[in-house]
Design a protein around this nucleic acid. Structure first.
Length: 493
RNA sequence: GGCGGCGUACCCAAGUGGCAAGGGAGAGGUCUGCAAAACCUCCAUUCAGCGGUUCAAGUCCGCUCGCCGCCUCCA
């Protein structure tokens, strides 16, 4: 019993490989090795990429919060057909394509609050390791060479199809791809591709060429995390063929099985119920979304649904997320006001309820997150506490004890928010952010000036003048709220 | 054709055996020079449909209907 307690910490992860939620137990106690498939840098990122990045950013932060020493690896695919094609089309070196979209990736992700990985390896930086593995696979009889190409022989790897839950025979029957005559089996895939003249290439025992798509991840995960590590993650569309193939290569090469303990895959973003994708052209880029919405709202929108479920994309729920965030900051502002303005003299005993809710938040939050990173439920708990805080403030509490409880409540909100990398702004900064993102053509000092003018008018009981100022601001999307001794501005949502 | 997933209020969305979280919209109310905003309260005896297991089912099992994904590059 005691032993069990030490081993398990309550975290459960849905494992694509087994199709079940499993108790999380890392390969090495206290440490977590996590590999996330990043992007191929041939174009700008869309909201689907953002989802994957944000979901696993939170996974990482939560594991860290639980006290694990997390080594987080996220790769860039910086050589493949799409990159070469793009370079040809634009008449620029392929390395320029890589540079351009890698920079853009960082810009987008930083804006979304996605933390950089501990290691961010690139395929082209691991050619030596890749060749090493391909050579090993050929030597062991798992791969064969044809005209400078090297293929993985799926027939020799008995576990093929286990991750994506399909058997090779069925796949052959339904294969829609034109079969390459030189392959022994239609499912065989390239480990190394011979390059055509003019294409980027590296020297290899099989002639000049470049790595196949899947092999880079095998090489990089092996190098940076070892032959057996904890979590491998990516979008659900990577399950087949990418992760299936990667698994086959890695395990065939090292002989270690399973090389990954937990496979995690996030669901898609859909538009009109259809998967958002480059080929359908129904995608929204991160840049265009951030031009209209605050990054926090985007994060909240994405985390309000469990990571495995699909999310239907549209402006409406994003707007709702923004509204919800505003409500959060509004409450924080009320707390600050109360803490600043309430005298320290002893007051009546504050009502129960909030104290319990405040001190209990992290337990509930943790329980939700322990259940396969259920951010949707965890966020629900956060908003329950927000509601409780408001109820408490409405009861007109007094005294240092009430202040203390509110401080603890805010601290709990901040702690939960820190794990999600949400709710981190001050209420004023939130308004300033909205001012920008809504493209309201008026600067803060100007608003303050108008407010001051209106205060004058109010003092002089010139209410029609005061109302006029308010109205003119409202037309621009700024709402004025009269409080006891001041007037504050808000962006209309 | 093979494999997998989903269907919870007007909308979005948690909930995987024990009285249906949360957000938006809507309705009442508090506050206020008037407002607005904010806040509070209310808002699913019911979980696509039909059967079954159980003391107990949205939750497990079976079938039906509807939607989606993967099997080709894809987060």
């Amino acid at each position: 019993m005691l032993e069990k307690k030490e081993k398990e910490d309550g975290l459960k992860i849905y494992n694509t490989l087994t199709g079940r939620k499993e108790e999380f137990a890392p390969v090495q106690p206290g440490h977590v090795g996590m590999y996330v498939c990043g992007v191929t840098v041939y174009d700008v990122c869309h909201i689907g990429h953002a989802r994957s990045a944000i979901v696993f950013d939170v996974t990482r932060r939560y594991l860290r919060h639980k006290g694990y020493d997390v080594k987080f690896v996220k790769n860039f695919t910086d050589i493949d057909d799409k990159i070469i094609n793009k370079a040809n089309r634009e008449g620029i070196p392929w390395t320029d394509v890589v540079k351009k979209y890698t920079d853009k990736y960082y810009e987008d992700m930083h804006r979304l609050g996605v933390e950089d990985a501990d290691v961010e390896p690139r395929a082209t930086g691991h050619i030596k390791e890749i060749i090493e593995i391909v050579k090993g696979l050929v030597d062991k009889g798992y791969a064969y060479v044809v005209d400078g190409d090297v293929y993985f022989d799926v027939e020799n790897y008995k576990d093929y199809g286990k991750l994506s839950k399909r058997n090779p025979d069925d796949m052959m029957a339904g294969a829609r791809v034109e079969v390459d005559e030189r392959k022994r089996n239609p499912m065989d895939f390239a480990l190394w591709k011979a390059s055509k003249p003019g294409e980027p290439s590296w020297k290899s025992p099989w002639g000049p060429g470049r790595p196949g798509w899947h092999i880079e991840c095998s090489a990089m995960s092996l190098k940076h995390l070892g032959g057996r590590f904890d979590i491998h993650a990516g979008g659900a569309d990577l399950i087949f063929p990418h992760h299936e193939n990667e698994r086959a290569q890695s395990e065939a090469y090292t002989g270690v099985s399973p090389f990954v303990k937990y496979w995690m895959h996030n669901g898609f973003i859909t538009v009109d119920k259809e998967k958002m994708s480059k080929s359908l052209g129904n995608f929204f880029t991160i840049e265009e979304i951030l031009d209209k919405f605050d990054p926090g709202a985007v994060r909240l929108f994405l985390l309000q649904t469990h990571y495995k479920n699909p999310i239907e994309f549209s402006n409406e729920p994003l707007r709702e997320a923004e509204l919800a965030l505003g409500r959060f900051y509004e409450t924080v502002e009320r707390v600050h006001e109360f803490v600043e303005k309430t005298p320290d003299e002893p007051g009546k005993e504050p009502p129960k309820g909030l104290e319990e809710a405040a001190d209990g938040l992290m337990k509930k939050f943790t329980e939700a997150m322990d259940d396969d990173f259920n951010t949707a439920m965890a966020i629900g708990h956060v908003f329950e506490l927000v509601k409780e805080i408001n109820r408490f403030l409405d009861s007109k509490p007094r005294g240092p004890r009430a202040k203390d409880i509110l401080r603890r409540a805010e601290a709990a909100l901040r702690e939960a928010g820190g794990i999600l990398n949400l709710f981190e702004k001050t209420p004023l900064d939130w308004q300033r952010a909205l001012l920008k993102v809504r493209h309201i053509g008026i600067e803060e000092p100007e608003i303050e000036r108008l407010i001051a003018g209106r205060q004058e008018a109010r003092k002089a009981k010139d209410f029609s003048r005061a109302d006029e100022i308010r109205k003119s601001l409202e037309e621009k999307g700024i709402i004025l709220e009269d409080k006891k001794d001041e007037t504050v501005w808000r962006v209309k949502v």
